[in-house]
Deep mutational scan, measured.
Amino acid sequence: KDKDLLKGLDQEQANEVIAVLQMHNIEANKIDSGKLGYSITVAEPDFTAAVYWIK
Rank of each mutant, 00 (worst) to 15 (best):
K30A: 12
N15I: 07
Y52P: 00
T48S: 12
L36P: 03
N29I: 12
K1T: 09
W53R: 01
K7I: 13
I31Q: 05
L6N: 02
Y52V: 05
E12D: 12
Q22Y: 11
I31A: 04
D4I: 15
K30N: 03
N25D: 08
E16I: 13
K55T: 14
G8E: 05
S39V: 12
L36C: 14
K55A: 12
P45L: 13
L5W: 03
H24I: 05
K3P: 05
W53F: 07
I40F: 02
A43L: 07
K30E: 03
I18T: 03
V20E: 05
N15E: 10
A43P: 08
S39Q: 06
A19M: 11
L36Y: 13
D46M: 09
W53N: 00
A50G: 03
L21I: 01
V20H: 13
G34L: 04
F47V: 04
G8W: 07
D32E: 07
E44D: 08
M23S: 11
A49T: 08
W53L: 07
I40R: 00
I31H: 09
T41D: 02
K3S: 05
H24K: 04
N25A: 07
D4G: 09
L9C: 12
E44P: 07
D4M: 15
H24G: 03
N29E: 06
S33F: 15
D32P: 08
A43D: 05
E27W: 13
Q11H: 11
E12H: 11
D32A: 09
E27Q: 14
D32H: 11
A49Q: 09
K30W: 08
K3Y: 09
K3D: 03
A43S: 10
F47E: 02
K30I: 15
L9E: 02
T41M: 09
I18R: 03
E12G: 08
E44H: 06
A43F: 06
K35Y: 11
K3T: 08
I18Q: 03
D2C: 13
N15T: 06
V20C: 14
I31N: 06
E16M: 14
D46S: 05
A50L: 04
T41H: 06
L9P: 00
A50I: 04
L36A: 11
K3Q: 07
E44I: 07
N25H: 10
D2S: 13
N29F: 12
D4A: 14
K1Y: 09
I40P: 00
D32Q: 08
E16H: 14
L9F: 03
I40N: 00
I26R: 01
I18Y: 05
I31V: 11
A19S: 08
L6I: 11
A49N: 09
S39T: 15
D10L: 08
V20M: 15
L6T: 03
L5Y: 03
V42Q: 01
Q13P: 03
K30H: 03
E12W: 12
Q22H: 10
L5A: 02
N29S: 10
D4P: 14
D4K: 12
N25W: 06
G8S: 04
K7W: 14
K1F: 10
Y38M: 04
H24S: 02
Q11E: 15
A43C: 07
G34K: 04
A14T: 03
W53M: 03
I26T: 02
S33N: 15
A28W: 07
L9V: 04
Q22D: 04
A50V: 04
K3N: 04
T48A: 14
Y38T: 02
F47T: 02
Y38Q: 00
Q13G: 06
F47W: 13
Y52W: 08
E27H: 14
L9W: 02
E16W: 15
L36N: 13
K3V: 13
G34F: 05
K35W: 10
A14R: 03
D10T: 15
V17L: 10
A49C: 15
G8M: 05
N29K: 14
D46R: 03
T48L: 14
D46L: 08
A50S: 04
L36F: 12
H24M: 05
S39R: 13
E44N: 05
E16L: 14
L36K: 10
L21M: 03
Q11P: 09
Q22G: 07
A28C: 10
I26W: 02
D2Y: 15
I54G: 01
G34Q: 04
I18N: 00
D2P: 13
L6Y: 06
P45W: 14
N25E: 05
L5H: 01
I26C: 04
L6A: 06
S33L: 15
I18M: 10
D4T: 15
D2H: 15
G37D: 03
Y38E: 00
W53V: 09
T48M: 13
K1R: 12
D2A: 13
S33M: 15
I26E: 01
L9R: 02
A49Y: 07
K55F: 14
I40T: 00
N29T: 12
T41C: 09
V17D: 00
A19W: 12
T41N: 04
A49G: 04
E27P: 13
D32I: 06
D46I: 05
T48Q: 13
P45M: 14
G34R: 03
I18P: 00
V17G: 01
K30M: 14
D32V: 06
K35L: 12
H24E: 01
A14S: 03
S39L: 10
Y52M: 10
E27D: 11
L21Q: 02
E44F: 09
L21A: 00
L21H: 00
Y38F: 12
I40K: 01
E16F: 15
E27I: 14
K1E: 08
I40M: 01
L21Y: 00
D4S: 13
Q11C: 13
M23G: 07
L6F: 10
I26L: 03
N25Q: 07
M23Q: 09
H24Q: 05
G34H: 04
G8D: 05
I31Y: 07
D2Q: 15
T48D: 14
A50D: 01
N25I: 04
I26V: 04
